[in-house]
Nucleic acid binder design. Structure first.
Ligand SMILES: [Mn+2]
Ligand SMILES: [Mn+2]
Ligand SMILES: [Zn+2]
Ligand SMILES: [Zn+2]
Lengths: 141, 141
DNA sequence: TTTTTTATCAGTAATCATTCCTATTAACGC
DNA sequence: GCGTTAATAGGAATGATTACTGATAAAAAA
């Protein structure tokens, strides 16, 4: 089958299937939340007690490159990961309870998508995050 | 004059006027670029040779709180600061030459602004960044 | 002006997320 | 199974940011 290659990363190396990488992907697929590297590390240790934090970081990078997961960096300066099965979306972040809600609407689908022409810019990726108070926290105040 | 208060931070402390803080604000006002804390530190050392990096960080936090400057955290995980005199805007980031261009258009001014109602969410701040290739780098390729 | 108060300072240590290093392990094509 | 080499565990190193501490200097009070 021409064109049917093994998955490769940007550096050209063939990506092997390992228990550690599969366990990380499983957690993100089942939990459908926005987990930090440390949180993923704690969760995956249940089934893979000997896994190291470095392995978690390396696999999160590979899985992001493969398009299996999304990496999002939020205002607190730490990255959070989620399964890509849900598809492209954005985020509403509560500054009180830290809860992160997905937002299906995308600004690039609107007139802002025209910025490429007017600014001579070729967009590849984009991020849109809204910070504020979620319904629960608003009612507590 | 009722209502004419001294500037205060969130914790209620009066904000004093110091050479160090003024020098940091001057650099961001004159350069009108997106500088990291380290870059600001190097620039301010010219006029304030004894300033410390900790002082730079503390003042960037205070100036952000006062609304005099904007803090933006980009995908590389480090914060960059700019004068707030230009007003609210967003960013086009070139992934080749790292140049950051301002984008006046704002997604919140479009239909996405309605998300507050449909998601029971009270938006306070938001960030929109587009990553891709600027005109210069696109023509080199 | 002189004194008092205390926000801010310089210097430095500590923290936190992330990346790098190296010897060892294990996936997978043959 | 065997050999190649991607991937791993463990730990050290890095880089950005924050916290601590005694000294300094803006405001405020006297
Ligand atoms: Mn999400
Ligand atoms: Mn800007
Ligand atoms: Zn989008
Ligand atoms: Zn906006």
């Amino acid at each position: 089958m021409p064109g049917d290659h093994k998955p490769k990363t940007a550096n050209g190396k063939i990506v092997r299937s390992t228990k550690q990488r599969q366990a990380i992907l499983d957690i993100l697929t089942k939990q459908q939340s926005h987990l930090s590297a440390e949180e993923i590390y704690q969760a995956v240790k249940i089934t893979q007690p000997r896994i190291s934090l470095g392995t978690v970081y390396r696999n999160l990078e590979i899985l992001t490159e493969l398009g299996s997961i999304y990496r999002n960096s939020f205002a607190d300066g730490k990255a959070r990961y989620e399964s890509a099965t849900i598809g492209h979306h954005h985020h509403l972040v509560c500054i009180n309870c830290q809860d992160i809600e997905n937002l299906t609407a995308c600004p690039m689908a609107q007139d802002i998508g025209n910025l490429a022409q007017s600014h001579d810019f070729e967009p590849l990726e984009h991020y849109f995050e809204v910070y504020g108070y979620c319904g629960k926290c608003r009612r507590k105040d």
